[in-house]
């Protein structure tokens, strides 16, 4: 159930501040999406593992051999702001 309490929590987690109109619109959208996925619970999933990315495949690892990295300029090419080789972001509060 998407009520105001759940909406407030999602907003906090997503770092979003919504206007009352936006909140109501998203609440309706999210409720519809959840209802749609409810259909899945009609399936009998007894004995089915919860998740498997590619059934039967495992490991798919690589050797520890370095390759070229991007040049600094390439790394930063899409950054809205940069300074002295760093990405620059607005001030950060708190810890993750």
């Amino acid at each position: 159930m998407i009520d105001d309490r759940v909406m407030a929590r999602i907003e906090q987690l997503a770092g979003l501040e919504l206007s009352p109109e936006e909140r109501e619109a998203l609440k309706a959208d999210l409720t519809r999406i959840l209802d749609y996925f409810q259909k899945l619970s009609e399936l009998d999933t007894q004995g089915v593992p919860p998740f498997e990315p590619l059934p039967g495949q495992v490991n798919a690892w690589r050797e520890d051999e370095p390759a070229e990295s991007l040049a600094q300029g390439e790394s930063l090419a899409n950054a809205p702001e940069q300074e002295a080789g760093y990405f620059k972001v607005p001030r950060v509060f708190g810890e993750p």
Partner: peptide, 25 residues
């Protein structure tokens, strides 16, 4: 130097896919 050891995978570019390092395991 900052941001000289990066690539689409560790920068989180869309579509980049991780491949585990066997040595780390």
């Amino acid at each position: 130097e900052p941001n000289t050891l990066t690539c689409p995978v560790c920068l989180g570019m869309p579509g980049a896919l991780p491949v585990p390092n066997r040595k780390a395991v």
